[in-house]
């Protein structure tokens, strides 16, 4: 995968370039390994420093980083034996939401998430991760299977939002999201939700009503994308950076506001820098959450879920 530099990451890449230059230098400088070590440490320090102080807008850029793992990457690397299940049984299969059954270690689970796609063709086929109503209806079908067969449900959010199109409206985007929330509010199985990238509006939250609502450290979650928010309130998308600030859309702000339950820390420098470590962290997180939730009776679980959402903003 090609490295994609974000502007504010430049100091890291300057260190890394120096390392490459040193390695190529002829004749090799004295104390090469010492110097390389030194630069390596410097690069790591620089990375930690930059990522400790990211602005909300910089977090938006990280959340959308092209090398950041997607739903399918988590499905393939955190779970075993994923079997994708298709279709809403009403005439459509939305590729912006994928779902199916898999094992988390030895535990069978249902996993559902938005998938934005990687290469151009796939991105178009997946509508850039923006679901139509059939996506939520497929998700609901799988959720109901999870309940019926006592499988915990894991949902992954990564979408700019529900698709704003004519077909989406005509097939009931409003009803599909509403119904999905109603189903999740009383689903009798543990639900763990993790925002892995972008959590945009009802299209994101439509699969996010969970017992544990968590965000990866550099993911974002907001009522509307910063661009959409800016275009509504400032009448131009040029104020997206300010909107990102105002929306308090990053994990550290949202945990302070008690809107989300947990923040899952990413490797130093973000998930896009170290996929394997990210998968391990995420796997441990899911295992811990499901272990904790499985000790609660289903009556208590749904009652607690209800109370949690009643408290938000009250």
């Amino acid at each position: 995968m090609m490295d994609q530099h974000l502007d504010f990451e430049q100091p890291i890449y300057t260190c890394l370039e120096k390392i490459e230059e040193l390695k190529k230098a002829v004749p090799a400088p004295e104390n090469l390994s010492g110097q390389l070590n030194q630069l390596q440490i410097e690069a790591e320090k620089e990375t930690a420093k930059i990522y400790k102080n990211l602005s909300p807008w910089q977090k938006v850029l990280v959340a959308r980083h092209p090398n950041r793992p997607h739903t399918i990457d988590y499905i393939n690397n955190v779970f075993d034996g994923f079997e994708e299940l298709h279709g809403d049984r009403l005439g459509d299969d939305d590729k912006a939401i994928v779902g199916g059954m898999a094992f988390l270690d030895e535990y069978p689970v249902v996993v559902i998430g938005h998938e934005k796609g990687r290469e151009t063709e796939e991105r178009v086929a997946r509508n850039f991760g923006m679901p139509h109503p059939s996506g939520f209806r497929k998700a609901n079908r799988l959720m109901e299977l999870a309940e019926k067969f006592s499988l915990p449900l894991i949902t992954l959010i990564d979408t700019p939002g529900a698709y704003p199109g004519v077909k989406a409206e005509h097939s009931g985007q409003h009803e599909a999201i509403a119904k999905s929330l109603e189903v999740m509010s009383d689903l009798r199985t543990p639900i763990v939700n993790l925002v892995i990238g972008e959590g945009g509006s009802g299209g994101g939250f439509g699969i996010g009503l969970a017992d544990t609502v968590a965000m990866l450290e550099y993911s974002i979650y907001s009522v509307a994308s910063p661009e959409a928010c800016a275009s509504i309130l400032w009448r131009t998308t040029e104020n997206a950076e300010q909107a990102a600030e105002a929306l308090k859309l990053d994990a550290s702000n949202l945990i302070k506001l008690e809107v989300i339950d947990k923040v899952v820390n990413e490797p130093v420098g973000g998930a896009h820098r170290n996929h394997q470590e990210t998968y391990q962290i995420v796997k441990d997180f899911f295992l811990n959450e499901l272990l904790a939730l499985s000790k609660i009776s289903l009556d208590d679980l749904t009652a607690k879920r209800y109370e949690k959402f009643m408290k938000i903003g009250s």
């Binding site: 999740m184 509006s201 009643m310």
Partner: peptide
């Protein structure tokens, strides 16, 4: 729709109201 000035608090009211409707229906 949602109230932009309350961002995520507003978004999660969708969950609150959907859960409340479910209670009524039950």
């Amino acid at each position: 729709g949602a109230r932009m000035q309350e961002s995520m608090i507003s978004l999660f009211q969708m969950g609150k109201t959907a859960a409340a409707v479910k209670k009524l229906k039950k």
